[in-house]
Structure formats: structure tokens, C-alpha cells
Amino acid sequence: MDRWRWLAEFDSAEAVVEAARQLRTRGYDRLEIFSPYELEGADAALGLERPQRIARWVLVGGLVGAAAGYAIQWYADAVSFPINVGGRPLHSAPAFVPITFESGVLIGAFAAFFGLMVAAGLPSLWRPVFEVEDFERTSVDRYWLAVEASDVVSEADRARDDLAALDPLRVERVEAER
């Protein structure tokens, strides 16, 4: 079954957020907003929950990185290549602290970066919405509200009519994201 989206264009942030709120109270739950910057209230209007995945990955990445950093230092200097420097302990935990911290931060930052890439499906240079004429203005001063609809004719028509009733600049149809 093909899926597609109806996109309605607005010229202000308030209008698009308000439109999303209205559609949501009417029971639409597959909504999306496209905007040039992060809109306040968009998450609430779309009913999005705070995404937890990236934060979890960063926590795990940081802990794994720190543990690995410590383990490498311990293995290198206390097990594999022990050097007696003035009788100081081979396993000197305080001396291993800086690198443990650094490796935790490094892997945590990689987890944040790749977590964002995976969660947002980047890179993906082409997206169906890019087929809409003048969608380029979304990174400048245009705001879009998208409604996903199935190809049941009655349902699709209703979605388009509901969008049109919100007084957008125009309504376009595109293929939905896979």
C-alpha cells in the first residue's frame, strides 16, 4: 500500500504550530512540522515525547569509553610492559584518571554524533519532501505541516480538506518517507 503525505505551507511559526495543534485535537497523530529553526511548542503540538535514545547511547558510550581507557592503561603499564620507576606502584590509579576521563568524553561525543545520525536517518541526501516545489524555502522562512495519509480515497481527501481549512498558502502531495 502506497503511503503519502499532504503538506501545507505556512508563512509563520505561530500559524504552523497552531495548525498542528488543531489537527491533533481532531485525532490526527501522524503529523510532522518542517521549519527553518527549532520551533517552541512544536513538540507539544505534535505530541512528541522527548527522545531518549541518544541520551542513553551517550551514557553507555561514555561509560564504555572510560572503562576501555582505564583497561588499556592498566594492561599496558601493569601487565604487558611493567617498568619500575623508583618503586612506584605499577597499577597507579591516580595517574590513569586523566586518560580515563578523556576517553570517556571522546566515546561519549562519538555516541552523540553517530546517535544523531542514526536517529535522524542522516545522511540521506534525497528525501521525498524535497520533491515539493520551493521546499528550499523551509531552511529560510517557510513552515510546513505534514499529514500522513493512506491511499484510501475517502481518508486522503478528508486529510487534504482538513489541511486546506487551516488557511495555508498551498497544499501539496508527496510520497511518504520510508
Binding site: E32, Y37, R50, I54
Partner: peptide, 9 residues
């Protein structure tokens, strides 16, 4: 693409 979900992430 500037979607609200991506901005949030």
C-alpha cells in the same frame, strides 16, 4: 530537512 523530530534530536 528541518523536521520537528530532527530538530528535537
Amino acid at each position: 530537512s528541518g523536521s520537528a523530530r530532527d530538530w528535537s534530536r
